[in-house]
């Protein structure tokens, strides 16, 4: 604001300050102060999402289109060469973004719906419901989740739906723990008690009284859980029991082309090819971690130094 010194009015200036900033202005102010790492993370995540959404438009070929030459080198028509049965790797990388991220996102959302809902309910109803759910979660968490997932997949068979359900249920135990822990502190507040006395139901108290107050840690946890789920699905696919071919997926792509690494001395480009999907996974999870780190600093001033 520039003021003409001759016509300065204190009342006018005070009046200006009172004008409230709109939501978008406030968001922009916070974003402007974000550190480089957070910006880097946001740019990466956004571009991944664009690629995932526009996959059929960007990709030069079809997802499972097979060409004559398997293990073709990098060239103009096959930007990153072809894989073991002659599918274009660049195309599969792009479709892989859509499949891997889509499945991970659905799984994380589902695990938050289960874990978050039950966690809130346990925090409000501290009697038998809390006891029963907490003990169940203790037991489920006593088995390492990758091992548990492997066992369940061997029983139910590996399909995309089974993968989503199994990992969502296993992961919801962690969400339950966190939601319950933060919600317990809010559930004893006077305004929650007032709502209960007013006669509001469990659903209302969960949604309108407690949830808004525990949003920041949950949002941060969402980012972290997304990374975990993503890495877990990638690991399972890499082991050959996750997302099944011909669906393009980064984890299984690494496995299918891994033997190319042996030829690093003769053709470095070919040897790097199997690392590209793995690098894509790593870049995404690092980016999400950067955003979560910054978000935690923003919302709670949570720092490890005193």
């Amino acid at each position: 604001m520039t003021h003409d010194p001759n016509t300065y009015s204190a009342i006018a200036e005070a009046g200006e300050v009172l004008k409230r900033r709109s939501r978008s202005e406030r968001v922009w102010l916070v974003l402007k102060k974000a550190p480089m790492t957070a910006w880097f993370g946001m740019v990466i995540v956004l571009s991944y999402f664009c690629v995932a959404l526009l996959a059929p438009l960007i990709a030069p070929y079809g997802e499972a289109q097979v060409f004559a030459e398997p293990y073709a080198p990098w060239s103009v028509e096959h930007l990153l060469g072809t894989d073991q049965i002659g599918r274009d790797i660049f195309t599969r990388l792009i479709f892989g973004a859509r499949n891997s991220m889509g499945i991970a996102l659905i799984t994380t959302l589902l695990s938050f719906a289960i874990g978050g809902g039950l966690g809130l309910a346990a925090a409000i109803d501290r009697r038998w419901l809390d006891q029963a759910l907490s003990r169940c979660v203790d037991i489920l968490m006593a088995i390492p989740s990758l091992i548990f997932a492997l066992m369940l997949l061997s029983i139910f068979g590996s399909s995309a739906l089974n993968l989503i359900l199994i990992i969502a249920v296993l992961d919801s135990t962690r969400v339950f723990r966190l939601t319950r822990a933060v919600a317990v502190n809010v559930a004893v507040m006077d305004y929650v008690e007032a709502a209960a006395l007013r006669g509001e139901g469990l659903g209302w108290i969960m949604r309108r009284e407690i949830l808004p107050n525990i949003m920041p840690p949950l949002v941060a946890e969402f980012g972290i859980r997304f990374c975990f789920v993503f890495l877990m699905i990638a690991a399972l696919s890499f082991l050959g029991v996750g997302i099944q071919p011909p669906t393009a997926d980064w984890g299984s792509m690494v496995r299918e082309n891994a033997s190319l690494i042996q030829f690093a001395k003769y053709d470095l480009k070919a040897a790097v090819t199997p690392l590209l999907p793995a690098a894509a996974i790593a870049l995404l999870t690092v980016a999400v971690n950067f955003i979560v780190d910054w978000f935690l600093h923003q919302t709670s001033g949570l720092r490890d130094e005193k």
Binding site: C227, F238, I261, A264, T285
Partner: peptide
């Protein structure tokens, strides 16, 4: 360490193979 944690195990393994096993 933050980067290592966010990286899939098999990525670390293959990078090590690329450098120490192959190159």
């Amino acid at each position: 360490t933050l980067t290592t944690i966010a990286t899939p195990d098999f990525f670390v393994a293959y990078i090590l193979i690329l450098f120490f096993g192959s190159l």
